[in-house]
Design a protein around this nucleic acid. Structure first.
Length: 202
DNA sequence: GGTGTTCGCTCCATCGACAG
DNA sequence: CTGTCGATGGAGCGAACACC
């Protein structure tokens, strides 16, 4: 049995609004996460989605602690440093699992999540991350509701991409020349109880 | 052997792309 | 709009060949 959290962060500002490069200076408006348990065959036993506004972050941290994997898209490069100023413990030291980095390791380039969602899940994003910031800045009830929905949708898409790799062992996307690419990936957990641990293939 | 032209390789700089 | 990196293209230098 493994416990996992799939998460996504939306920020209050854009890089153009701040000086420097630290995502921690953008501020976080909302965090959505999908907490679940899966069995040894990676079948989901149970799972539920939760969203946390800034004031609720103190209740959120315990959910991240003690899980086997914290899954995100570009989460090591963006979401985790964005949340860092809010955490009073070493959040970045938890077992983060960044799907974008795994794709980059094999394919050699950074691929937008939308490109993968489109070809792999046949699913399209209707809003962009920029709109998430505008929703926050607008601040009325309806905009905030759309912000939460957007963030949760992003988490679900991330989860579905992750599950697709677990099940099928590859991802599809179109590169910038519009050529369909297939990248083979292995997201399975290391078999700690296996007598012959795989060291590497030559 | 000396000189001139062309081809190729390497390195550096600029560009683009990801996240919001 | 930014930092980080991979990709891409241009420039410069060196080697090789050919012709006088």
């Amino acid at each position: 049995m493994y416990s996992e959290v799939i998460f996504d962060v939306e920020t209050k500002k854009l890089f153009g609004d701040i000086k420097g490069n630290d995502p921690g200076d953008l501020g976080v408006s909302i965090v959505s996460l999908y907490k679940r348990k899966i069995d040894e065959d990676y079948k989901e036993v149970k799972g539920n989605i939760l969203s946390f506004w800034e004031k609720d972050f103190p209740e959120m941290w315990p959910i991240f602690q003690g899980v086997d994997r914290i899954i995100g898209y570009n989460s090591i490069g963006f979401d985790t440093p964005a949340l860092k100023p809010y955490a009073n413990f070493p959040f970045s030291k938890l077992p983060h699992f960044d799907i974008m980095l795994k794709v980059k390791e094999i394919f050699g380039r950074r691929i937008p999540m939308d490109a993968i969602a489109k070809e792999t899940l046949d699913r399209e994003k209707k809003e962009t991350g920029l709109e998430a910031v505008y929703f926050w800045q607008k601040g009325d009830k309806e905009s905030l509701e759309r912000l939460r929905k957007y963030c949760e949708d992003d988490v679900i898409i991330t989860r579905d991409i992750y599950d697709y790799v677990l099940k099928n062992g590859y991802l599809l996307f179109k590169d910038k020349w519009n050529t369909l690419q297939k990248v083979e990936l292995d997201f399975s957990y290391p078999k700690t109880d296996s007598p012959e641990k795989q060291i590497g293939l030559f």
